[in-house]
């Protein structure tokens, strides 16, 4: 089991290094960092000085090593466009994105599992069919259209919810939270729904199909034969065995949540990391782009590691040291 976790840790490190190399190449080779920092009008002497100071005359492998060391300490250089430290920009934007992403993920999983189980148990009920058809449409709708639709209904027509920003936030240390004020909570509703919707449909469809499969398995038949009440079979026996693939998807989908947070944040002018990244792409602000890339890679590696650990906790077969191929 330890070997299993160590192996995923190693894989994660390799991924991080590969991503760091891409981020480094972006910084080093997309445009000239010296020109980007000093502008077109700088003197040759200024340029030579900055080149020396940034260490751009050193051999490339050394530069890469320095880049990795700096990044590991959280130093990503200075934003070309805003002239501030990238790490400060990221810390400032982080709380908005984390609150949005975590709430969306919770919303997607709780609702997704509930609907999925319902659709599996009441397979032919009209509510189950309705839910399934809506989810098919949900998979096909681009995220930003859902957001725009919600804005039109709830902000423009009904005027119930604000359409942009985080509302009032409360500062707790360096963390700014929107969870403690009414306007903050109201501002969260539509972005969370928008961001969670795609994940919700995916989780729901997955839970339903897995559940239907498990309910056909022999051990469920035997459980019925033993006279265990249906409710207990559904929730204790079937649902538990449905959870493993769901957890896998959960890990993968968190990436989706972060990626689509970029879109959701743009639709709702949410002051988070995604909006920062889109701005950076628009103005080719390479330090911010590479820092964001590294941040996302880190989150991915961390989640997949967590998923691997949760497997071991959920699936006793993995604990004996015998590796069972997991779906």
């Amino acid at each position: 089991m330890l070997a299993y976790i160590l192996r995923s840790l190693m894989q994660g490190l390799v991924v991080m290094l590969a991503v760091a190399f891409i981020a480094f190449s972006m910084f080093r080779f997309v445009g000239d960092p010296v020109v980007n920092m000093l502008g077109q009008e700088a003197t040759l002497q200024d340029r030579a000085e900055l080149t020396q100071r940034l260490g751009l005359n050193d051999p490339v492998p050394l530069q890469f090593a320095r880049f990795v060391a700096d990044a590991a300490r959280g130093d990503f250089g200075i934003s070309y466009r805003q002239g501030r430290k990238v790490s400060a920009l990221i810390l400032e934007r982080l709380p908005a994105t984390v609150e949005l992403a975590v709430l969306s993920a919770i919303f997607a999983f709780v609702t997704g599992i509930a609907f999925g189980v319902y659709a599996a148990i009441r397979r032919d009920g009209w509510i189950a069919n309705l839910v399934m058809s809506v989810s098919l449409i949900g998979v096909s709708l681009p995220t930003f259209l859902i957001g725009i639709g919600l804005i039109y209904v709830f902000a423009v027509e009904l005027r119930w919810l604000p359409s942009f920003g985080r509302g009032d936030t409360v500062q707790i240390g360096w963390w700014s939270t929107g969870l403690l004020t009414t306007s903050g909570l109201k501002s969260l509703v539509m972005p969370v729904l928008t961001l969670g919707f795609l994940q919700l449909t995916l989780v729901m469809r997955l839970v339903r199909s897995e559940m239907l499969e498990v309910m056909r398995a022999d051990f469920i038949r035997f459980a019925r034969a033993r006279g265990i009440p249906e409710r207990r079979i559904e929730f204790r026996h079937a649902l538990r065995n449905t959870m493993i693939p769901v957890i896998t998807i959960a890990g993968v989908q968190l990436g989706g949540v972060i990626a689509f947070a970029i879109v959701t944040e743009t639709v709702f002018q949410w002051p988070g990391l995604g909006a920062l990244f889109v701005n950076a792409v628009q103005f080719v602000d390479v330090p911010v782009m590479s820092a964001y890339l590294l941040f996302v890679a880190f989150v991915f590696v961390l989640t997949s590691l967590l998923v691997d650990i949760v497997y071991v906790a959920l699936d006793p077969r993995l604990r004996g040291g015998v590796l069972v191929p997991v779906k």
């Binding site: 990626a259 792409v281 080719v284 991915f300």
Partner: peptide, 27 residues
Amino acid sequence: RIADVQLTFPAILIALLIDGVVRGIFK
């Protein structure tokens, strides 16, 4: 291996990144 690393990231994120890089090159 390249495919594995790339598959870790959602396509939309990679597309955004490549978009930025390509535009940086053809500035």
